[in-house]
Amino acid sequence: MAHAHESNTKRIWIVFGILSFITIVEVYLGILKPAALHLQGMGTSWLNWIFIILTLAKAYGIAWVFMHLEGEKKWLRRSIVWSAVFLISYLVTLFLFEGGYIFDTLSPLVKW
């Protein structure tokens, strides 16, 4: 507890404002689904990329400010963040490749 007596109230409300704003943008885009973003993209649609990036931005805000990772010792922070980022990226990559493979293999067998 290095910052024992100072108050961060103002900063907390600013971060809340940013998180709320991002959520509003996400919902707005999710309802509107602009064709240029929704129907084109790289790998997945541009819209999905926007959602993923905004989500990571929100996660950063929550972890760094609300959970106070910014104030922890550098290597405590790294032991948490690096472990999570490395393992989750690995897991997600394998799973999504596998899912795509199963689709390629099975979907030609289903007639609609």
């Binding site: 999570a84 393992l87 989750i88 897991l91 799973f95 999504l96 596998e98 899912g99 199963i102 689709f103």
Partner: peptide, 23 residues
């Protein structure tokens, strides 16, 4: 951290299933 990995497992499994039935 470990709970985050559990949830990631669920969401990744959701992703796999969704990719499997993407159409």
């Amino acid at each position: 951290l470990s709970d985050a990995l559990t949830f990631s497992g669920f969401l990744a499994a959701y992703g796999l299933t969704r990719f499997k039935f993407i159409d």
